[in-house]
Design a protein around this nucleic acid. Sequence first.
RNA 1: GGAGAGAUGGGUGAGUGGCUGAAACCAACGGUUUGCUAAACCGUCGUAGGGGUUAAACUCUACCGAGAGUUCGAAUCUCUCUCUCUCCGCCA
Length: 425
Amino acid sequence: MLDLKFIRENPDLVKLGVGNKNEKNTVDEILELDKERRDFLQRTEELKAKRNTVSQEIARLKKSGENADGIVAEMRDVSDEIKSLDDKLRIISDKLNVLLLWIPNLPHESVPVGKSAADNIEDRQWLPEGFKFENEAPVLDHVELGKKLNILDFERGAKISGSGFPVYVGKGATLERALINYMLDLHLAEHGYTEMMPPLLVNRDSMTGTGQIPKMEEDMYHCEKDDLFPIPTAEVPITNFHRNEILNESDLPIKYVGYTKCFRREAGSYGKDSKGFLRVHEFNKVEMVKFVKPESSYYELENLVNDAEDILKALKIPYRILKLCTGDLSFSAAKCYDIETWSPAENKWLEASSCSNFDNFQARRANIRYRKTEDKKVDFVHTLNGSGLATSRLMVSILENYQTPEGKVIVPEVLQKYTGFKIIE
RNA sequence: GGAGAGAUGGGUGAGUGGCUGAAACCAACGGUUUGCUAAACCGUCGUAGGGGUUAAACUCUACCGAGAGUUCGAAUCUCUCUCUCUCCGCCA
């Protein structure tokens, strides 16, 4: 959520940012409603001030035994008027609030302006020693490998649940678990995160707090009976862990990491990139979430990316970092880096992580603040999060990059002590 | 699912219709005293929104779990909901 005062004072800046994000521009409507709201507010507050003073007068009269019937009757009318003004005010405020919830976060000034993913800018690449993009031997894709080695079963997953619900089998399941454990352990031991295991079903307020609702509501699964949502990312429960709280400045930055299942309907994306792991409804992800002081959030974003990169370097998976342009930035993000890993079989880069700074956008929505040590004032924190990493696309890269000419898969060295085996055949 | 108890500021907790934005205590912060620490004493100590100001000062409104209602006036009375605790039942 943007600060209404900021919109009031910088309408052109807001319009520009919203436009660059390809979102609907309702700034003028908002300003009009805001003006109307303040008008009503002033009128109703004047009447309330009157009511307060006269009420005391009535108390005094009654105490001294005097007759107060006249002003009591008069105040009855004032009260009625307050009620009707308050009703109108509420209607206006509700309308205004809905519009505000639909205004996206503004892109940071360092974000390149662009229309779509095609305008994203490659920041850097990292390739393991001896890596070549051209393959000498023919490569199997991850679906073929999964089938041949009997470690992944997409067909049976479809039978059990539907398409996009993979089953990990045997050493495939062990490898997945090893990967998750390895990533968690690295973030705990090397990067100073605190591990979290949050609920996988969250309420509407939490979804609104991090910005998935209203815009992405159609992409969420929904348990209607209880109005609960299976999480699309651990960002939601972990960020909302501190919803409606005031943190101490001395506790910042707070860094959490958690492994969860993630659930996404991926509405409207059928048939697109739908093979195997490339688009799934349920997947595993290790997510990092940070609560930081405003002045350090862009520095923390770079660190967040580095934390995710460390995993890929250790796994020796080729990857590149993209700086997302304004048009490809998600609703709540002010700045975002995507990390893409290389798939030799698809012969392209696959998104495996997204690291974003939300500035104070989520903090406003979720009301997460901190008290400054120096002047005791409260201010909104900045929130960040990044996948570190999502396993599905990463598993594609691991299986394909680590396959042997015979179609076996070597387990990456750092995972071997977690799997207990070195090769899948 | 049934029965009961409860929800007040950073914490404990008082408060059953007007003088309560809210006692008291604790914590925190500033100061005095002190060789240092401690203790004692004095003072400060909510959030949000509107008006106002270069900025303040100042001023108004709202907020005692959430929402509605009664009343000239609600932390206080009524209703609904949420959450927490205790007991019973059911399931794991």
